[in-house]
Design a protein around this nucleic acid. Structure first.
Lengths: 346, 346
DNA sequence: CGTTAGCACTCTCTGGCAGCGAGTGCTAAC
DNA sequence: GTTAGCACTCGCTGCCAGAGAGTGCTAACG
């Protein structure tokens, strides 16, 4: 069923008003504030139609209407104005995030902060996954005869290191050689998908049990717990500002999920990694805990490859337009920044 | 004023009962559940006395009594049984935390988790402060002619690194020499209190503008924002389980503070760094936001030196005995672990 | 003189009830 | 097709009474 122009106007007005006020909106209000040409009675008829198709719902008989998930979906896909972020805001975002480019982690962390601050919703940024980072260089450095520092440098540029105690002293020259050989073998390979036979070859090169173990442990960072460290969450308490979470039980459920991070990780990993912004509304998130929440997410890239995802989490009654433009801007900024950081290396 | 034996018994019973039930406790309940020999009327007289001295208070005229901050203080200092953690729990703690000794950060993070899980309160662990860590070795490693990896290893054993792009290629031999000289100068010096003239000497050694800048930036980690990263907070939502925080505004205030972390950092830094467990009750925390909360904290050590603080945060109506023994056990375990990790290095 | 029983009193909490306000759906007229 | 009018529904608020818990005081007791 397609909606005529007037039904769309009405639906748009209801969603807009409800986003602003969080109160069910009635025909009278609507006529007065948005639709001066039409009488409340007419609006009532239209609203009844909209409810029947499933775009609206009524909390109880004598209340106004509120949008259903389906209503929000139609709003986001069809009705909404895609208002742009004011240029000065965009510039500020860029500068704020760029000013923290000492390390990528810092920039990512900061991006989550900016996003939350910008939207007043909870923000989440998933950094480049350890097991997807591409190996650029491996170095073994002798600290003293018995201790070796194992350093891994990846693209995007993360530096992981681990201190390894070796049973028998190693000659620095030996480490040099191993470093070169390892780098040659692994360069350009994604850190999480190293094939078995390559691992066998590496074992041949390294020879030392302790070092091999340490290397494998680094490979093991694709394990769950470590991936959670890669998720930056900011502004979790902002969900409490939303009237729909004035109920303590609801608030606790969502905050509990936030704290665990695990489920958020799964959700963000599940988001389609396509360019552009994705919106997931209410029950569209399969998780019951988020049935009153919406996600606005986008992926960011490094060297033309999608490496991570970020987004905001708010009530379904979210200001989608604002959220989308903010998420878009931060994602773009982050992509740019990663490219700059990547190119710096000669 | 000193309390006679019976007043103490009554106070102890009231605190115990209130800790368990969160309900104001009346004379009748008291007589029935704890003080079989005495009649409610007598207890009422005694309670009136205890209220007058300030150990108890009444939410309203016709309610039972609840302990005041002063009452809890007396309970903690004098009345409380110091019950020990069951041995198997202690062993479990030890094993759980030790199993994560790959990196110190991980162990610390895990300690906060264990502490929260153990007590059902919010747990917080402040890691060894960057500026207090003692410099053990500095290494400059050439990755390619134009990129140098700056590595700093400290006691307790943290490894910081930074990638520096240099304008003009450096010879590996040069870096070796600089590394040696720097290590010699800085070894044994606390990272945050390097005197000005030493910095001048270092500048002489390094010579290169970019490297010097990177080094100074690493020194700069004593700045606020970085110190916050050193604070591990776990179980923040557990405060919502407490009936005293069923009021959304109160809950939001505390959760807001948790999220910022800054204030917690200041509080933990302000805790006396003496061996043993410290308890700070209600208004004793100067911060108004925590006037209904208590902190149970302890310091942990590395090589005989206090390096960090940890603790739990709960309502003033906290199970102090349990909390104290848990905090104590985790602090000891962490100290031990740091020593083990420290000694591993030969 | 400390202890206790009895009693009047206070205060909170709960449930029922009425009145209100907002908003609807329906009908009939325009 | 649009609109005015009207009866109806439902949640919210405030009020009131009764129950329940606990107190302080007084007077009697050992």
């Amino acid at each position: 069923m397609t909606l005529d122009e007037r039904k769309m106007q009405i639906l748009r007005a209801i969603v807009t008003d409800y986003i602003n006020t969080a109160e069910p909106v009635g025909s009278r209000t609507l006529a007065r504030k948005y639709l001066l040409g039409i009488s409340p009675a007419t609006i009532r008829n239209e609203m009844a139609d909209l409810e029947e198709i499933g775009y609206l719902q009524q909390p109880h008989t004598s209340a106004g209407r509120i949008p259903s998930d389906k209503g929000y979906r139609f709003y986001v896909d069809v009705l909404m104005d895609h208002h742009l972020l004011p240029l000065e805001t965009a510039v500020t975002i860029r500068e704020t995030i760029r000013s923290r480019q000492r390390e990528i982690e810092e920039a990512i962390h900061h991006a989550s902060y900016v996003l939350s601050y910008l939207t007043n919703y909870t923000a989440v940024v998933l950094g480049p996954m350890p097991h997807e980072r591409i190996c650029e260089q491996i170095r073994l450095v002798s600290l003293d005869p018995c201790n070796v520092l194992l350093v891994l440098i990846t693209v995007p540029r993360f530096i992981e290191n681990q201190l390894v105690e070796v049973a028998e002293p190693v000659a620095p020259g030996e480490l040099e050689k191993i470093s070169m050989a390892l780098t040659e073998k692994l360069q350009g390979i994604a850190w999480g998908v190293i094939p078995q036979d390559l691992i066998r070859e590496i074992r041949e090169i390294i020879r030392r049990q302790e070092l091999m173990e340490a290397l494998l442990q680094m490979l093991g960072v694709s394990a769950r717990e470590d991936r959670v460290d890669n998720l930056y969450l900011e502004g979790t308490t902002r969900i409490l500002d939303q009237p729909e979470f004035k109920d303590l039980e609801k608030a606790r459920a969502v905050l509990g999920i936030f704290e665990g991070k695990q489920m958020l990780l799964e959700i963000l990993e599940g988001v389609a990694r396509e360019p552009g912004v994705a919106v997931s509304i209410g029950q569209e998130n399969r998780r019951d805990e988020f049935k009153d929440c919406s996600f606005v997410t986008a992926s960011y890239e490094s060297g033309g490859r999608v490496v991570g995802t970020l987004g905001v989490i708010g009530p379904t009654r979210m200001d989608y337009s604002r959220a989308i433009s903010a998420v878009e801007c931060v994602a773009d900024t982050l992509s740019e920044l990663l490219d700059v950081l990547g190119k710096r290396k000669k």
